[in-house]
C-alpha cells in the first residue's frame, strides 16, 4: 500500500466528513419537518448525512486500495498573498476606492509569483490598474469611484 496515496484519500474523506457534519448539525437546528411537509432543515440534513457517509467510504477505501501520487509542494507564500490580496480588495474597495485598492491588491498578487521582486511587481500593479480602469470604468462604464470616502474625509 502506498502510504502517501492512502493519506491523500484519507484527508479527502476527512474534509468531506467535516463539511457533512457541519452542514448536518446546523441543519438539525432548523425546522426539519417531515417528508410530507419538509422544513428548511430537511434537505441539507439528508445531504449532510450522505456526505458524511461518502467521506467515510472514501477514507475506508483509502485503506483498502490507496491511489498513488504524492501531495507535492504547496506554494504557501502565494497562498497567503493571494488570500490577503483578495480580502484587502473586498474590505477596502468601497472605502479607499478602486485605484488605491486595486494597486495594493495587484501588487500583493504579483509578489506571489516565484522569484518575484518588488519593482517589477509594482510595475505590474501600475499597468494592470491602468488597464482595468480603461476596460471597466471607461469602456464598460462601470460606476466604481476612483477614490473612496475614506480618503475624502
Amino acid at each position: 500500500m502506498n502510504m502517501h496515496g492512502a493519506r491523500k484519500d484519507l484527508l479527502a474523506g476527512a474534509v468531506f466528513v467535516c463539511f457533512g457534519l457541519a452542514f448536518a448539525l446546523t441543519a438539525g437546528s432548523y425546522d426539519v419537518g417531515s417528508a410530507l411537509r419538509m422544513g428548511p432543515g430537511y434537505f441539507p440534513l439528508v445531504l449532510g448525512g450522505l456526505l458524511v457517509v461518502l467521506g467515510i467510504a472514501i477514507a475506508v477505501k483509502a485503506f483498502v486500495a490507496g491511489e498513488g501520487g504524492d501531495l507535492g509542494a504547496v506554494p504557501w507564500k502565494a497562498l497567503v498573498l493571494l488570500v490577503v490580496a483578495l480580502l484587502f480588495f473586498g474590505y477596502t474597495v468601497r472605502g479607499l476606492g478602486l485605484v488605491p485598492s486595486l494597486l495594493v491588491t495587484v501588487f500583493l498578487t504579483a509578489l506571489a509569483g516565484r522569484n518575484a521582486r518588488v519593482i517589477p511587481a509594482a510595475l505590474v500593479a501600475a499597468s494592470l490598474t491602468a488597464l482595468s480602469i480603461l476596460i471597466f470604468v471607461i469602456a464598460l462604464q462601470l460606476r466604481l469611484p476612483y477614490f473612496g470616502f475614506w480618503l475624502q474625509g
Binding site: 493571494l82 490580496a85 483578495l86 480580502l87 480588495f89 473586498g90 474590505y91 474597495v93 468601497r94 478602486l98 486595486l102 491588491t105 495587484v106 498578487t109 504579483a110 506571489a112 509569483g113 518575484a116 517589477p120 505590474v124 500593479a125 494592470l128 490598474t129 488597464l131 482595468s132 476596460i135 471597466f136 462601470l142 466604481l144
Partner: peptide, 27 residues
C-alpha cells in the same frame, strides 16, 4: 505568467464585486 495571473485576480475581483457591490462575494 507573472503578468497573467495578477490580471486574472484583478479582473475577477472587480467583476465579482461589481455584481452586487458586496465585499462578501470577493471574500
Amino acid at each position: 505568467y507573472r503578468f497573467l495571473f495578477p490580471a486574472i485576480i484583478a479582473f475577477a475581483s472587480i467583476g465579482t464585486f461589481s455584481i452586487n457591490r458586496n465585499p462578501f462575494d470577493v471574500y
